[in-house]
């Protein structure tokens, strides 16, 4: 599964994932606390410098994450021109642009495993209420593992239905797909048990 991570050895790549995420959070909070054009412009410049110069990322890596929100931002600016004024609009739009770019820098310079480790660390306080942080990594891995499996099963069902004369019935695809996936989940649960995923002492089987 393709990740948006771009391998590299820059200082930004080597910075700790937790630090980068904390920086992103601080930036988000700061930009909303101080909605002033000079602050927003400075933040935008700092983010671009961090990503392009310090992190040596190709501009395309950042653009890839701006593209999905590009139209929205343009529309937002147009709206502000009509309703409020150009300055408010510029602040609102550039603020979001800076944040999206900063997030893109973190995503492009941080390995998935490092981010998973941060998520597990953040969840650690929840251990007292029974959350097992170590499972986050397993769940993420399982999701990535099963996306192609589910896609393949969907394609196979579509073929089978086409062979029987159905065409483009999407709803009809979903019921057999979900049932197959639920059956798969049942066996997968057994396989996790068989391979020792349930390491912590468990309650005894409740069903007899």
């Amino acid at each position: 599964m393709l990740s948006l991570y771009r391998p590299g050895t820059s200082p930004v790549h080597r910075a700790r994932a937790g630090l980068k995420l904390a920086g992103l959070a601080a930036l988000g909070t700061g930009l909303f606390a101080v909605p002033r054009i000079e602050v927003v412009l400075a933040a935008l410049a700092a983010v671009l410098a961090t990503g392009l110069l310090l992190g040596r990322l190709p501009a395309g890596a950042l653009w890839a994450q701006v593209r999905p929100v590009w139209l929205l931002l343009a529309g937002l600016f147009g709206f502000h021109l009509l309703v409020t004024d150009a300055l408010t609009g510029t602040v609102a739009v550039l603020r979001l642009l800076a944040l999206v770019l900063a997030a893109a820098v973190v995503t492009a310079t941080t390995r998935v495993t490092e981010l998973v480790a941060v998520v597990e660390w953040l969840l650690r306080p929840l251990e007292v209420v029974g959350v097992r942080p170590a499972r986050v990594g397993l769940l993420v891995a399982m999701t990535l593992r099963f996306i192609p499996v589910v896609a393949e099963r969907a394609a196979r069902i579509r073929e089978a239905q086409a062979a029987r004369g159905a065409s483009g019935v999407r709803l009809g695809l979903l019921v057999p797909l979900l049932v197959q996936v639920l059956q798969l989940a049942h066996t997968l649960g057994e396989a996790l048990d068989a391979r020792g995923a349930d390491d912590v002492p468990v309650r005894r089987p409740r069903r007899a």
């Binding site: 599964m1 397993l138 891995a141 399982m142 990535l144 593992r145 499996v149 798969l184 066996t187 997968l188 396989a191 996790l192 068989a194 391979r195 995923a197």
Partner: peptide
């Protein structure tokens, strides 16, 4: 085997 391979 698809049901017991859990890592990508």
């Amino acid at each position: 085997p698809d049901a017991q391979i859990v890592h990508p």
